[in-house]
């Protein structure tokens, strides 16, 4: 076992460990926004480390380039998907406000009660809003 093997093993084990903590965070964190933190940071670095370890072990084989591609895709896509999920979670008020120290954004504005609504054939609300939101009542009464 030479130095390269050692480095590769360390990378692989550390990467696997970070992916494990990402999974643990997904289970243990209190709300969607916190879970998305777990899904981006340790997850991305974990995959990068696993890829680094694999590249060291597989040097000289054509598959190495594919691993580079995996790493790049992970770096580009993980933040985007986390952003989309947390943005929707925020707008649908899946936020535990009691756990926030500071909240400068405030509650998202009620989704336009004044807007004339195209009436859904079945009478169901067509806007993207939570059924338990405070403006759900005003919608049904108007």
């Amino acid at each position: 076992m030479n130095a390269a093997d050692l480095v590769a093993s360390i990378c692989l084990v550390a990467g696997c460990f970070l992916c494990l903590t990402a999974g643990l965070g997904l289970v243990r964190f209190p709300d969607v926004l916190n879970r998305m933190h777990a899904a981006t940071k340790p997850q991305v670095l974990g995959v990068l480390l696993v890829m680094t370890g694999a590249v060291i072990r597989l040097t000289g084989q054509p598959i190495v380039w594919m691993l580079v591609l995996v790493a790049v895709s992970q770096l580009i896509t993980a933040p985007v998907s986390a952003h989309m999920v947390s943005r929707i979670a925020y707008r649908r008020r899946h936020v535990r406000r009691a756990r926030l120290l500071v909240d400068e954004l405030g509650t998202p504005p009620a989704p336009l009660p004044a807007r004339p609504h195209p009436v859904h054939p079945e009478g169901a609300p067509d806007a993207d809003e939570p059924a338990d939101g405070p403006e759900a009542d005003s919608r049904t009464t108007s």
Partner: peptide
């Protein structure tokens, strides 16, 4: 990236709660 990964990992393992913020 390294620091934040370690930080979030520690939060995942640590017992107890932490406070978040939106700015």
């Amino acid at each position: 990236l390294l620091i934040s990964s370690v930080e979030v990992s520690w939060l995942a393992f640590r017992p107890g709660r932490h406070r978040s913020a939106i700015i």
